[in-house]
Structure formats: C-alpha cells, structure tokens
Design a protein around this nucleic acid. Structure first.
Ligand SMILES: [Mn+2]
Ligand SMILES: [Mn+2]
Ligand SMILES: [Zn+2]
Ligand SMILES: [Zn+2]
Lengths: 125, 125
DNA sequence: ATTACATTTGCAACATTGTTGCATTAATAA
DNA sequence: TTATTAATGCAACAATGTTGCAAATGTAAT
C-alpha cells in the first residue's frame, strides 16, 4: 500500500489553508510560502490534500481556482454551500450554512455544484 | 464617438455562439472557425460581444470560461439562472428558467452570481 | 467611386497557469 | 542504521490569456 508522508511542504500548506479565513489560490499560497518549496510541489500537495479530503476546491467567479479547508464535513464530505467572492477585497469565503434550493427539470442528475456569489462582503459594504 | 463595425470575424463568432445549443469556450470557437481569424481576434471579439450584451460568460466547474447567447434578456440584462455542465458529453447548458433561492447572512451585497451544477444531462443519463 | 479615418486585425512577444519525466532527496518502517 | 519508496526540485513543455504596433478593412463623407 501507499503510505502518505508528512513533509514540511505539506504540513505548511495544509496549515496555511486551514487557518486562513478565506480561500487561497495557488499563487497566493506560493507567495506566502516564500520559496519554501517549488511551484510544482504546491500543485502536487494540493492534489493530495484534496484526495485526503482535508481541503476543497472553489472556482471563483473569474475562473480562478481557490482552496479552503473542510470544517463541517467530518462525517460526510459535501460542499453544497455557497461561496462569496468580494469584489473589493477579493476574498472568497465559504458560507457553510447557506444552502440554495432550486427546482431542476426532469432527467438531470446532479453530482456536484459550484455556487459563487460576488459583490461586497460585510467588511467592505 | 466610437462606432462598432461588423467584421466577418465578429459576425461569424456571434452567429456560432447564438446558434449553439450549448455554451462554447474560446478554444472550441477557435476550432470551429478553422483559421478564419487569429486567436487574439477571438478574444477581442468576445470582449466586444460581452460589452454589447449579445453574449454572456459562464465559468464552468473546472474554471474554463464558456460563452452563451443571451436569449431572455432583451429588456434587462440579468443571468441569475443555473448552468448545467454534463460530465459525460462536457456540454454546458443555460437553464434559463431555473432560478435558485437562498438566504444570505446580513450585510452581504450581491451583484453577480455564478451557479453551475455538474452531473449528467438528459441525453446522457 | 474615391477618399479619409477610426476600428479591427494579425503577428510577435510576453506573462501566467498547469502538467510531465526523471534524477535526487528525505520520511518512515524494519 | 539501513532499506524502501513517497515526495521533491528542476527543466521542459503545453495551454491560456494579454499587449504593442503596423497593416488591413469597414464606414461615412466627398
Ligand atoms: Mn467552501
Ligand atoms: Mn446562461
Ligand atoms: Zn470584502
Ligand atoms: Zn451530456
């Protein structure tokens, strides 16, 4: 079997994302790490953290992919919540408690959803 | 004042998007046009069509940006509808009639939304 | 039809983002 | 401490998107 290893890069990246109040992009993580590891390593660590279910991926309104820690998915791993992207401070926040409702036409089978609102966050409005 | 011109490239791209039943990405449009114009021209034409309100932009679940014609926004220009991204045939469809409802915490001011579901479309399920 | 001119285009050059192969490094278990 | 193999660094590459500038082209006036 394949046994995961706790490397410095992985530990630091995980810590960074989990402790951050907002979702982070690859380039933001790269900046924060200040050369601790290679660009490519970050991509690979992010893939591993996603697989392990430690973090989840968010597609921002402009298509930029951001990563946020999983807080409320200890039992089951679902992220059917809304994300809010602030146009002023550029932060992306998980609104864990907000679940949208909608009525889909027949014969559509949903497996994932990505719902991002943009506008002004409480700090900026 | 700046007067828009109807060039061959613009006409063809607009036609392509409007007539398509699914949203198209830049690279898909590029393929369809078969060298009718440069890559860069497509980017610039898309920008113009967006500004003119002829098409709208959709961010797919994987962050790929797609373009779809505006059908039901003759009076006002809003796209608060759901988009469906099929994991099998990779099509992105506008579900113009499906509007999600949700209850946002106070002090969030929404100006735009991007709501994309992924799964299987009627044809593929 | 010809001219004038601003818009649009093509091309080159560049930046950013993401992926892959491979030799080297380093975490973990024996 | 040593053996094993996961993880990293680096180079090379592909895909996507942006910008500057000269050339081409659409449109309106003559
Ligand atoms: Mn989230
Ligand atoms: Mn749409
Ligand atoms: Zn803000
Ligand atoms: Zn399908």
């Amino acid at each position: 079997m394949k046994t995961a290893r706790n490397t410095i890069a992985k530990t630091k990246i995980q810590e960074l994302i989990i402790l951050s109040p907002i979702a982070l992009s690859h380039s933001e993580i790269h900046k924060y790490l200040e050369g601790l590891c290679d660009r490519v390593t970050i991509y690979r660590v992010l893939d591993r953290l996603l697989e392990e279910g430690v973090i989840h991926k968010i597609v921002d309104v402009d298509g930029v992919i951001k990563y946020a820690g999983c807080h409320s998915c200890s039992t089951e791993h679902s992220h059917n919540h809304i994300h809010f992207s602030c146009q002023k401070c550029m932060s992306v926040t998980c609104l864990e408690n907000v679940e949208p409702s909608f009525k889909l036409p027949k014969n559509y089978k949903v497996s994932e959803m990505n719902f991002t609102l943009s506008g002004l966050c409480p700090q900026c409005s």
